[in-house]
Amino acid sequence: MSEIAHQDHTEKKAFLVNSSSLKDVRSFCREVFQKLKIHEDLKEELVLAIAEAAQNIVKHAFKNNADANELMVVQISCENNKLQIAFYDRGTPVDPNKVKHREIDNVKPGGLGTFFIQEIMDAVEFRDGKKPWINHLVLTKQL
């Protein structure tokens, strides 16, 4: 847990649902975490977790085939030193019971993104998406 008191802050941004948006998601996160004065090492871990979640939206919720104008929203909130990152998308509804990473000892390409998210974050929760959204993922981390 961080000894620094991070200021309360919320920012959100919409991104096109495609793989070339992932660098923009990372830039957005880095900018917000800079404002929150999050330590460099933790910052890059959080950026990885968020980018992996955004990648899952592109790859799984939309199967790499989203309409050109389709959007996903990433919202980063910090309150009382607790970081909450929310994702909203209108892809195929996610069945949380089917979101599993591969066995880590079974070395093969793929299946690591969810593992990284779970390793880095304290909690991963799929909530009911409210219209117009279908999926609402929330990642939390105590700073």
Binding site: A51, E52, Q55, G110, L112, F115, F116
Partner: peptide, 8 residues
Amino acid sequence: YMDSSGIS
């Protein structure tokens, strides 16, 4: 920076 896709 490398994500899970790069690791793959």
